Amino acid sequence: MHGTLPNTDLKEDIRDYWSRRSETFDLAFGHRIPQGPEFDAWAAAIRERLGPEPRRVLELACGTGEVTRLLLSLGHEVTALDFSEAMLAVARKKHADAKGLRFLLADAENPMEPDESYDAIVCRHLVWTLTTPAQAFAEWYRMLKPGGTLLFFDGDWAAPTPLGRLASRAIAVLDRLVGTDPHYDGAMSDRHANIMARLPFGDGLTVDRVLPLLETAGFRDMTIGSHASIAKAQRRTADLRNRLRTLLYRRFILCCRKPA
């Protein structure tokens, strides 16, 4: 029992951190997906990988329901899961009249949904927070139908790219000139760093690190896509500071399948 306590404490810290951010989460750049170029770029990235036909989709760590809106707009039947009641409350309000949508309060690493019950599993910015990634991937594999797709959007948030380091310096200058952005991880950035330091991928989520774990779980047909089209769309409507933020980290789109 003693061995499970640190992981339990970490999960509670993660839940509390994102619950506290729920009311202002959509104000932070990179979380809300506004209608227009950015929405279209995200939708294209999902459509390209899930196909044009309506699917039964499990969205893990749905947060305030931004990716949920994308999935619904593409005609999918969505179960949107999060383990923060505060986040789900925001998402429920946002999608109060939506059809083909079910919300579920559960742990994304152990959703306890039936075997082979989904055509696709989709998540954004979740994998880097996994406390037991190997077990989580095995669970996700179990819940997918044969031929089903796992699609996730994530990145290496531990270290800026060389260009990102320059962008970070420019952002620091802007912060001094015009004041800091209170919503960009806000005053809780120390808590964010503390959580990150305790995660398996806290020192960097890279394709090379995640692929062997996915293969061990049984996934095949791995494809790695670029986030560049989404970042380009974000820059079309962002201010200077947020345009610079699109350059900070190495991001990727990973798609793989459960063999038919």
Rank of each mutant, 00 (worst) to 15 (best):
G3F: 07
L5I: 15
L5E: 14
L5A: 12
T8H: 09
D13C: 00
I14E: 10
W18H: 15
S19V: 04
I33K: 06
P34W: 08
Q35R: 13
Q35N: 10
P37F: 06
E38P: 07
E38N: 03
D40Q: 12
A43S: 15
A44Y: 00
I46L: 14
I46C: 04
E48N: 11
R49H: 07
L50K: 01
L50N: 04
P52G: 10
E53W: 07
R55I: 04
R56Q: 14
V57N: 05
E59I: 04
A61C: 13
G65V: 12
E66Q: 15
V67W: 06
L70H: 05
L70C: 08
G75W: 02
E77G: 08
V78M: 07
V78I: 10
A80L: 06
A80Q: 09
L81H: 02
F83P: 00
E85R: 13
M87H: 05
A89D: 11
A91C: 08
K94Q: 10
K94P: 03
K94H: 08
H95W: 10
G100P: 05
G100A: 05
L101W: 03
L101K: 00
E109M: 04
N110M: 10
N110Q: 13
P111R: 03
M112I: 00
E113T: 15
D115N: 10
E116T: 05
C123R: 01
L126R: 01
V127K: 01
T129N: 12
T132K: 09
P133Y: 02
A136Y: 08
A138S: 15
E139F: 06
R142V: 08
R142L: 10
L144V: 04
L150H: 01
F153S: 02
D154P: 11
D156T: 03
A158W: 08
P162F: 12
G164N: 06
G164V: 05
R169L: 14
I171D: 08
V173Q: 10
V173T: 13
V173L: 13
D175C: 04
R176F: 11
R176A: 14
L177Q: 13
V178F: 13
V178W: 11
T180A: 14
D181A: 09
D181Y: 08
H183I: 00
G186N: 09
G186P: 05
H192G: 08
A193D: 15
A193T: 12
I195T: 11
M196P: 01
A197S: 15
L199W: 03
G202I: 03
L205V: 02
R209W: 05
V210K: 07
L211Q: 04
L214P: 00
R220I: 07
I224M: 01
H227R: 11
A228Y: 06
A228D: 15
S229N: 09
I230P: 03
R235C: 14
R236L: 15
N242I: 02
R243T: 03
L244V: 02
L247V: 10
F252G: 08
F252I: 00
I253G: 05
L254F: 07
C256M: 06
R257F: 01
P259D: 07
A260Q: 04
